[in-house]
Amino acid sequence: MLAVNGVFKTFNRGTVNEKTALHNVNLHLKEGDFVTLIGGNGAGKSTLLNCIAGLHEVDSGSILIDGKDVTKLPEHKRAGILGRVFQDPMEGTAANMWLEENMALAFRRGQRRTLKWGISGKERELYRTLLSRLELGLENRLNVKVGMLSGGQRQAVTLLMAILKRPKLLLLDEHTAALDPKTAAKVLALTEKFIGQEKLTTLMVIHNMRDAIRFGNRLIMMHEGRILLDIEGEAPSKSSPLRTCYSVSGRPAEPNLPMTASFCLEFFSRKTAGLFPSGGAGQKDDNQGKGKYCLPLPACAAMFHQSDCDKAAPAGG
């Protein structure tokens, strides 16, 4: 479905601010894959999504979506096969246009726009039905300017717009990061519902480690422009990410995931030392792994931070 082959991307090349955002990134998604993508700030997650969406031109390498080479296509020409939701709720909708007009814009994604009416009566019914699925009471507010809606509502609408025309690939760029915890959970639940119902191939950047483990069938971790970790498997149960890792480590290593098993162990044993008290085995592996896998550890540190915050929040409150 998606093939990212040897993609390099450097910003501000030749200046003091030169920053390698993507370094030889290879990523292949199968039809129906729901991938969560994690990594610290500056890891290259958003850059990767933006390169797939066409915001940035890649320096080298190629990007294929559904077998079609889109490497050189401008952003608006790729839009027909992509659904996107951005981090900033303000970014995904046109604030001064009506809700139904926003939906109508999304409904015509990838089509040639003509001098026909921008929205038809039949569509309105469709939008009403779809908006009622959000359970936010928006189905009766078609003629409200989107700018009047709350951030959470706008994000839910953006999500609906992204899947209105079934995309070949859904790109979610930390789309719950700017929302309060309750709204974020609601939008995430909607996301999961829609992806499940429509069986959408999805690449979701997420900051929260727990959600990254909870959602999807595959987890990818990036650090300094490289993919460090790529775990595949059914969505693990919430309570025991550690066990999941062991089960992964028990599997024969796949050729394209060279350090998955052992790195994963180290990653989680360190991370969960405090979070999951029963980490005896993990500790042992950790000691064995020390030194050998020191390279990825700073990356983990970035991840721990977020999880620690998660842990601290309920305790503090």
């Binding site: 608006h76 839009a79 992509l82 970014e91 046109a94 604030a95 246009m97 007009e101 994604r109 089509q111």
Partner: peptide, 18 residues
Amino acid sequence: CAIRATGDNPQMSRAQGI
């Protein structure tokens, strides 16, 4: 509508194939 969307939110417009 596409022109209005472009003036309103160019990033979103491109994402909608405009």
